[in-house]
Design a protein around this nucleic acid. Structure first.
Length: 607
DNA sequence: ATAGGGTTAG
């Protein structure tokens, strides 16, 4: 019988008492072995009833994996064994040092040696698996709970749920969550709800999160500030700022106080919609209820102004925040840099990078990526490359975005071979291309006329199905149309359905436009009908593309029928489309039709 | 357990 089996079964609580008295002996033992630098008396002391000896292990000197291994080896050789709590402390230190697999192997060693463990140790092990990116291994640790009779708690399951959510396995998380609820496996708390709701929101299931909030209201665990804030933020990100404000007002009515995070989410939502007056009112309210805007809040404002090209206003926000004692950080400065880059004032941006360092704010990889992009957009590829080399010199590591940005820049100026070499450099550096990189490579090849290369890349990525999204297809589709590989484009479109990817408005637009340019009226017509059936209503771009497609193909007459049809179904025309349309109608002598349509345009534009 | 910044397609 191995040592762990002693701790199994229903007698566990009794045995735990035994283990505890064991522990005191261990503490005494470690006191006598006080030659070790890892033991000290500085922490709040615990007094052993038996020996009246004051002792605590101190792990502050454990600074690397090597230290941890030494301490661990020493601990397991100590006779009698140190307390479970001591092992838990060591494992926590290892997590803070990011030695997650070390935690797992220490735990394996502990089991082999029959060292007792408790729910805290097991939860730390689960957390390590999660941080290693394999949350599903957490389930096997759950097995250890059942086998050893250790009682789990809310935190155990919250940890697994958080891990699953972070790996975007929201379905698995929901399955577990439902099981916990329906089988009453453990008591729910606000934190667990928060974790699941946050996971749902991050995966775009805001409405499900909202219904969970409603369920909470009916139950014993009432939603708190954080739970409300999670949904408020998600609604803002879904561009449903109105709904977010409804929820915000509702929580205030119910006496749940919004905090700086709640307010900041709303400020950001309003900024993205240019609702400056609303922003002003909200900031006033914050002052009134004594919730101070912090560096996040101010950075959102700074970023919003910069993205609109209003860098002067952004700088004014910067002055205000400094005046209020809120220190701008790397994110704030990065936004300012981007603001200048967007206006083409890359040299100013470059100077900000240098002045950041003077104020004690260290640039990060974002800072460099912003500047690299600035140079690329100005087609200053040599400067961009120079900056790329500077990144490593500054002790930073170029990431996927850095490489993608430069690849895009190289393609843009037609340096296809450089792009190819740089792509190889990226792979050699161990940076794997993501969906952006794929799109850039595909589009870059197509734009520069390398159809075959684009095709082979396309097929390579297509096979790695889990990485495929609609974007790659849209890029391929548009490119293949542009170079008149109609069959290819058509087959890509058809394939979307078979692999279960849903075409979006852009997919339809690209394809409709491609068909129009080719003068394939019937097919375009067919597709528009499909578009409507699939709930993808034609948007401004659709109408523009159709009109331009027709004009380009000089097949105005045949195409006019399609236009009439979509106008009849509700043409979401905007001004620039209308002018193109007028051009087309006059071209084919459809003046009377045009006159009929004018009131129609007015009606729709006013809606 | 919750908030801010960088790269893609029509």
């Amino acid at each position: 019988m191995d040592k762990t089996s002693v701790y199994r079964g229903k007698f566990f609580p009794l045995i735990r008492l035994f283990a505890l008295s064991h522990t005191h002996a261990a503490l005494f033992h470690s006191c006598s072995a006080s030659t070790s630098k890892y033991y000290s008396l500085r922490e709040k002391p615990s007094v052993s009833r038996k020996h009246k000896v004051v002792i605590f292990r101190d792990f502050r000197h454990v600074n690397n994996l090597n230290d941890a291994v030494c301490v661990f080896n020493q601990m397991v050789q100590t006779e009698p064994l140190p307390c479970v709590v001591e092992f838990a402390k060591l494992l926590r230190v290892m997590i803070s040092m990011k030695h997650y697999s070390g935690v797992v192997s220490f735990f394996g060693e502990m089991r082999k040696l029959g060292i007792p463990f408790d729910e805290y140790i097991l939860t730390i092990v689960i957390n390590s698996f999660c941080l290693l990116g394999c949350a599903e291994h957490g389930f096997s640790v759950l097995g250890i709970f059942f086998k050893s009779g250790v009682q789990f708690n809310v935190v155990t399951f919250s940890t697994i749920l958080r891990g699953l959510c972070e790996q975007n396995k929201i379905k698995d998380a929901m399955w577990l969550f439902n099981k916990l609820v329906t089988e009453r496996i453990c008591k729910m708390d606000e934190v667990m709800f928060g974790i699941v709701m946050n996971g749902l929101c991050k995966q775009g299931h805001t409405q499900t999160a909202l219904s969970l909030l409603r369920i909470m209201e009916q139950g014993d665990t009432k939603p708190n500030t954080i739970v409300y804030s999670i949904v408020v933020d998600a609604l803002c990100k879904d561009k449903m700022v109105g709904a977010a404000f409804n929820l915000f007002n509702e929580m205030k009515r119910k006496g749940i106080t919004p905090n700086v995070l709640t307010y900041s989410s709303l400020v950001d939502g309003l900024c993205k919609f240019d609702q400056w007056e609303g922003v002003r009112l909200l900031l006033d309210e914050m002052m009134y209820v004594n919730v101070s805007p912090n560096v996040h809040t101010f950075s959102m404002l700074v970023d919003a102004f910069c993205k609109k090209g209003m860098v002067e206003d952004a700088v004014e926000v910067l002055t205000i925040m400094i005046g209020r004692g809120e220190h701008p950080d790397v994110v704030t400065y990065n936004s300012i840099m981007e603001g200048y880059c967007l206006r083409g004032e890359i040299d100013v941006a470059r100077r900000i990078l240098d002045s950041m360092i003077d104020t004690g704010v260290k640039p990060d990889i974002f800072s460099y990526n912003i500047l690299v992009n600035g140079y690329c957009k100005q087609k200053k590829l040599d400067e961009a490359m120079h900056l790329y080399f500077e990144i490593s010199q500054k002790g930073l590591k170029p990431d996927t975005v850095t490489y993608s940005t430069i690849l895009q820049g190289l393609f843009e100026v037609g340096r296809v071979e450089c792009s190819e070499n740089f792509f190889t450099e990226m792979e050699n550096a161990g940076i794997s291309p993501d969906i952006y990189t794929c799109g850039i490579m595909l589009h870059g090849y197509l734009k520069n006329g390398h159809v075959e290369k684009a095709m082979s890349l396309f097929h390579r990525w297509e096979k790695q199905k889990e990485d495929t999204n609609i974007f790659i297809y849209n890029t391929g589709n548009g490119g293949f149309f542009r170079i008149q590989k109609l069959d290819k484009a058509r087959s890509i479109f058809d394939k979307l359905y078979t692999i279960g990817l849903h075409p979006d408005a852009i997919t339809y637009n690209i394809t409709v436009n491609g068909l129009c340019v080719e003068g394939l009226v019937d097919e375009a017509k067919e597709l528009l009908r499909k578009m409507e059936d699939n709930g993808c209503l034609p948007d401004n771009a659709t109408s523009n593309l159709i009109v331009h497609g027709f004009l380009k193909s000089n097949k105005a007459n045949e195409a006019m029928a399609v236009l009439k049809e979509i106008i009849g179904r509700g043409f979401p025309a905007v001004k620039d489309t209308v002018s193109s349309l007028i051009e087309l109608l006059l071209l084919i002598g459809e003046g009377p039709f045009l006159l009929n349509m004018i009131p129609e345009f007015h009606l729709r534009n006013e809606k």
